[in-house]
Write a protein that binds this DNA or RNA. Structure first.
Length: 261
DNA sequence: AAACATCGCAACCGCAACCTA
DNA sequence: ATAGGTTGCGGTTGCGATGTT
């Protein structure tokens, strides 16, 4: 991390008012100014950058705009099935460590992942009338939602065998390559390196299956018979999460509840 | 058509960790 | 050692878009 403070200064609220610092949505002109300045001078030293570039914004605002929106390698839009699976897996492991999770989804920002979790996952918890942190909901995610995602990814791969469909799964935490972009879009021939995580999944020749723990206990095989996904789970990357839920989830939750009661 | 409700996301805020003079 | 500043993180909010009544 390159910290500099030779030309930095923070502003009090009154100073901000005096300088008429802008807040709220960025304009096209502001975006252009920021992109142009960073192209010539690089990023970092955000407070001085904001002033040097002539932007009436806080350094913090500039940094956020750049990292979450303007950066050329930022990926925006539909979260793919593979990304959803990865988010669920990593969140089950690390909780709300959005930045850490984002490191494993190249181009995705912590903000986007956080928003995905809040708008999609928590919404489903609400619909199922259970707490997102409850054991029941976590079990439902692990034994229903995630297996379904895997199956849908498999199906998508089978439907479009010419496309390389790779599920990027996390390596053990101490892996030095954990955050590298190589874990996405990896050619099928080079997949095995992504699947050596014993507590997670196993894969051979582009086939996915849960590890022992999950494959032995997952009830998804029962549920998935006759499930209708409405043909909307190809590679369109649409709101794939919504169709993962059905009356079976309620049934599963009830079983969980009865078991734990 | 209009009023109201809900959703999704960009941006903000407070705080803690970190850096350096 | 520490004070003053920056950066990064997670939680929260505001608002336009969209859906519903």
């Amino acid at each position: 991390m390159d910290h500099h403070q030779d030309d930095t200064k923070s502003y009090s609220q009154s100073e901000e008012d005096l300088l008429e610092l802008r807040r709220g949505p960025w304009t096209v002109d502001e975006d252009f100014t920021l992109i142009n300045y960073i192209a010539h001078h690089g990023e970092g030293r955000w407070n001085s950058l904001a002033r040097s570039a002539g932007l009436k914004r806080t350094g913090k605002s500039c940094r956020l705009r750049w990292l979450n929106y303007l950066r050329p390698d930022v990926r925006r839009g539909n979260i793919t099935l593979e990304e959803q699976l990865l988010i669920l897996e990593l969140h089950s492991r690390w909780g709300n460590r959005w930045s850490k999770i984002a490191q494993h989804l190249p181009g995705r920002t912590d903000n986007e992942i956080k928003n995905y979790w809040r708008t999609r996952v928590q919404k489903h918890a609400k619909q199922l009338k259970c707490d997102v942190n409850s054991k029941q909901f976590k079990d439902t995610m692990r034994y229903l939602w995630m297996p379904r995602l895997v199956e849908r990814i498999q199906a998508a791969a089978a439907a479009a065998p010419n496309l390389d469909v790779a599920v990027a799964l996390p390596r053990p935490e101490n892996s030095s390559a954990a955050a590298s972009s190589e874990s996405f879009g990896t050619p099928a021939s080079d997949l095995t390196d992504c699947y050596n995580n014993q507590d997670c999944y196993a894969a051979n020749n582009n086939q996915f299956s849960y590890g022992d723990q999950l494959s032995l206990s997952s009830p998804s095989g029962y549920f998935n018979q006759g499930l209708d996904f409405g043909g909307q789970w190809a590679m369109d990357g649409g709101d794939a999460s919504d169709s993962l839920w059905s009356v079976d989830d309620v049934w599963f939750l009830q079983q969980q509840f009865n078991t734990n009661a």
